[in-house]
């Protein structure tokens, strides 16, 4: 039985996702200048700018010294040659 309720949020797919296909970014960060730049997680975003914002807000467990995002498409696999990169979450 479907529940009816008012005021349901309308999703503007184009605005919030940039299109029908989601685009993924991997997030890398280091805590301080002495620590390694490590992979900390993964975000979905329609463009580079929103990827930066989402990465900063979702992975906020530290006051990172440095953080960057890399489109998943740009990662070239070495151990799994020929395959696209796998999810790198966490």
């Amino acid at each position: 039985m479907a529940t009816k309720f008012k005021g349901k949020k309308k999703i503007d797919q184009k605005r919030e996702r940039g299109g029908k296909e989601p685009k993924y970014y991997e997030v890398f960060a280091r805590k301080n200048s002495d620590s390694e730049l490590s992979h900390v997680g993964s975000v979905e975003a329609p463009n580079d700018e929103l990827a930066q914002v989402r990465a900063w807000f979702i992975y906020d467990q530290h006051k990172w010294r440095e953080m960057c995002v890399i489109p998943l498409d740009s990662i070239i696999t070495v151990t799994e040659e020929g395959k696209s990169a796998k999810i790198k979450m966490g």
Partner: peptide
């Protein structure tokens, strides 16, 4: 934030977060 990370994983299994 925790849910967001779980959604990110679920999308690899064909889920649409929105």
């Amino acid at each position: 934030g925790h849910a967001q990370m779980m959604y990110r994983i679920l999308e690899d299994f064909g889920y649409d977060t929105h």
